[in-house]
């Protein structure tokens, strides 16, 4: 990964706090380059989920700057819906729209945001459902699918917008254990195809397999930001080593 390439996501000195209490993000900076897969991990409450939601402005920030593909998030004159449309997001609880068929879940934003014709949206949707192995489920409602299938549909829905980057917010942590791997398989395939990805997860196996860098957060701060092999073989900070020993030894 060339370090001089313009990053797709650039987070600079971001601080965020709710009206009462401790700041949830403290002077966080990190970048994700084109084609790079960055895993963000850390104990619960470390701010990693909040950080990823700041990237597409689902959470507002008080200080600092976030740019996506050269455009400043929340900047003046930036069309937020258009910007968000180029950032795919996969949620912990899938958030498929329960009143729509799987196919309509994929088509909605293609038609309403990108202005694609229904026909165009459907053929793109079908191709993506095929890619995640669920072409046969196009006419079902989300409630008729298993958790793993729903999350694969959610990935396809995000991909249907032809995003420049994909955000994964604990995409496997609400799944039953036997369904985790089918979702991780799709994510690995996506990473190997060259997609730029920022992934909040506890799945260290996934990180080892495809991540270029691992970012460790604790108490709202970036504690460690290292290439994957460095992180797993000799994390610098005691907090990261402690975290790793807890989740890897079990």
């Amino acid at each position: 990964m060339s370090s001089t390439a313009e990053p797709v996501i650039r987070i600079e000195h971001v601080t965020k706090s709710y009206t009462s209490g401790m700041p949830v993000l403290r002077d966080v900076s990190l970048t994700v380059a084109r084609g790079e897969v960055v895993v963000v991990c850390g104990p619960s409450g470390s701010g990693k989920s909040t950080l990823i939601k700041c990237v597409n402005a689902l959470e507002p920030i008080q200080q600092g700057r976030i740019t996506v593909d050269g455009e400043q998030v929340g900047g003046k004159g930036v069309n937020l819906p258009r910007l968000r449309a180029r950032v795919g997001m996969v949620f912990q609880h899938f958030e498929l729209f329960p009143h729509m068929r799987v196919l309509d879940n994929l088509c909605l934003a293609q038609c309403k945001v990108l202005g694609r014709s229904r026909q165009e949206a459907e053929s793109r949707s079908e191709a993506l459902l095929d890619r995640v192995g669920l072409k046969a489920f196009a006419g079902k409602h989300p409630g008729q699918l298993s958790g793993g299938q729903q999350q694969r549909v959610a990935i396809a829905r995000a991909l249907a917008m032809d995003p420049v980057v994909m955000l994964f917010d604990e995409a496997t942590s609400a799944l039953d254990p036997e369904m985790v791997s089918e979702v991780l398989d799709v994510m690995v395939e996506l990473a190997r195809s060259g997609m730029t990805m920022m992934v909040v997860t506890h799945e260290m196996g996934f990180a080892r397999k495809v991540a270029h860098r691992v970012v460790f957060m604790d108490q709202g701060e970036v504690v460690e930001d290292s290439p994957t092999t460095v992180f797993f073989e000799g994390a610098q900070s005691p907090r990261a080593r402690q975290f790793l020993s807890k989740i890897l030894t079990y």
Partner: peptide
């Protein structure tokens, strides 16, 4: 659930579109 509106926004829908296509149909049902 609040994630529904967030998912609509993340797909690039405007807040009104998210209300119109994602939230209200569920509410009416």
């Amino acid at each position: 659930p609040r994630g529904q509106a967030a998912a609509g926004l993340a797909l690039g829908l405007t807040p009104l579109q998210s209300m119109r296509y994602v939230i209200l149909p569920q509410v009416f049902r």
